[in-house]
Nucleic acid binder design. Structure first.
Lengths: 197, 197
DNA sequence: GACAAAAATGAACGATGTTCAATGTGGGTG
DNA sequence: CACCCACATTGAACATCGTTCATTTTTGTC
């Protein structure tokens, strides 16, 4: 095994270990020393692969987003656009519930200096929107790209907010059954309101 | 000045200092030593007043929620229910933008062990919902409390999600003008969809 | 002024992310 | 095969946190 492969292997093992530990203990319980112990390298070894722990977490989030993206892809089998949008919302809620700590990490993790995620990760977030845009385009063929761009973010944001307040017990929310009903209602409402200036 | 007053005074000064520092540097840049320095007490003095830093942050968030609650109250002058809901959404977005770091702290702060906020703070979050419930009840007088309860959380959550993805540059969002337009659209859509099973 | 109770102090502790001089290693070369 | 050097790996050390607690200072009362 050459040195590039070993290096890549170590990187991959670190991301996997970090992902598992975030899933287990959450972002706040995530420790550099635990990752080093799990992949059996020295503490400093992490910094030969990643600039800092934040960068490692960014890679964990990239993996999580890839899985979410894959889950979204299963909705393409639903032909009716409105049903497709409801399916996406359901998938989103289920994924969040089934991978709660890693899903939390997607939105809890902040970079120092208030900077957003690097482009290679932001692109993965944006990729999720394509799944919303496609059925929207079918429903409203006369909408231009700017309107689709805007409305897809609105729909995603609204559903995201519903899921957020429901899953994080932080203040108030809805139980699982109500959440699904309200997500369906939300899609119906937004699809029935074609006003786009 | 008796000792109770002095103690209360110190507590208040600590919360104010913490609030100012969170507004300035965000939750992640918040340091116990900075608070102690600003109120001119020893580091350990904080722990004579609060169990830990988390408790101090909870009090900061309570203050922020009180201010948000007060801002919501100004919307009661709007008579038309739909316009009132739009005003509330606007106020929410403006407050979040105008007090971004303190608003972030409302939703970023997590207690150890995945516990939600204590009752005295959760009640303040719930108080915000009353402002949504009131115009909803005017619009749909036949809805019972359970439906109002559910739908108000849906509306709040949807608007909250829109504001969240737009203000936190984290992945994608809308600019200020589009955010307002989409919030109005969201209210119209949800008010026009009276289906409540 | 003396004394007990309460409050305030800040040095010390353990935990954490990060650094870097020291050590180990693998593959090319004579 | 022995040598060697570039590079990977190590883990002790460091700075910075939140938190604790023995000690000191202040306060209230007689």
């Amino acid at each position: 095994m050459n040195v590039q492969t070993k290096r890549a292997n170590l990187k991959e093992r670190m991301v996997d270990a970090a992902s598992r530990q975030i899933a287990e203990k959450g972002l706040s319980g995530f420790r550099a020393r635990d990752v080093a112990a799990e992949v059996r390298c020295a503490l400093g070894g992490i910094y030969n692969v990643f600039d800092d722990l934040d960068t490692l977490i960014l890679h964990v989030n990239a993996n999580t987003l890839d899985q979410l993206q894959e889950a979204f892809s299963t909705a393409t089998s639903v032909a009716d656009p409105t049903s497709r949008l409801k399916a996406l919302a359901r998938i989103y809620a289920d994924f969040a519930r089934g991978n709660q700590r890693r899903w939390d990490a997607l939105f809890d993790h902040r970079l120092a200096g208030g900077k957003g995620p690097p482009d290679w990760l932001a692109a993965r977030y944006a990729l999720l929107l394509d799944h919303v845009i496609k059925p929207l385009k079918t429903l409203f063929p006369d909408w231009n790209d700017a309107v689709l761009h805007r409305r897809s973010r609105t729909m995603f944001g609204a559903a995201h907010g519903l899921v957020t307040i429901s899953l994080q017990k932080r203040f108030f929310g809805l139980d699982e059954v109500q959440l699904r009903q309200e997500l369906d209602m939300l899609v119906d409402a937004l699809v029935a309101e074609p006003a786009a200036r």
